[in-house]
Amino acid sequence: MSQQIRQPPARRHFIIQLAVCGAALHAGRARAQARVDEDSETAVSLGYKHDTAQVDAKKYPQHKPEQKCLNCSFWQGAQTDAWAGCSMFGRKQIAAGGWCVAWRKA
């Protein structure tokens, strides 16, 4: 009677699996990142709106319609991202078409 001895997976196979799992975990965290709530204390204090067209012109006369989070120096995403990080909001994401009083030309 012959017994087969199970050999552990090759080291290279293990390392590849570890890398794939790590990348998947990182991607899942990035997608799950919370978005800024317009009613949060920080958003209200900065006059943040997800849509620049919704900004109160009387309250924020410095606002111009072409000013969007996407073209702000604090935008931390790519030009194609709909949502990305912002220095003003810590780990929360903002809308590319949004605006707040901290807007500065990129």
Rank of each mutant, 00 (worst) to 15 (best):
A84L: 12
P61Q: 01
V36N: 09
Q62Y: 06
N71G: 09
A10H: 02
G90T: 12
C72Y: 03
A102Y: 10
R35M: 14
L18W: 01
D39L: 14
G77Y: 14
D51A: 05
R35T: 13
S2W: 01
P9H: 04
D39H: 11
Q3C: 01
G98C: 07
V44E: 08
D56C: 07
R31P: 02
R35H: 12
P61W: 01
I16Y: 03
P8D: 04
R12K: 10
G85K: 12
A43D: 00
W83Y: 13
Y60T: 05
A43N: 00
C100N: 02
T52K: 07
L46E: 03
F74W: 06
A24V: 14
P65W: 09
K49V: 15
A19Y: 06
A24Q: 10
R6F: 09
P65R: 10
Q67K: 00
Q67V: 02
H26L: 15
K59L: 08
R6E: 09
C72M: 03
Q33C: 11
G98I: 07
A10Q: 03
D51M: 01
I5V: 05
A57H: 09
L46D: 00
Q62I: 07
Q17A: 15
P65T: 04
D51T: 00
A19R: 06
G98S: 07
Q7K: 05
A32M: 13
T52W: 09
Q4N: 07
I94A: 10
Q67C: 00
G28C: 15
A57W: 05
E38H: 07
S73V: 14
S2A: 07
D39W: 04
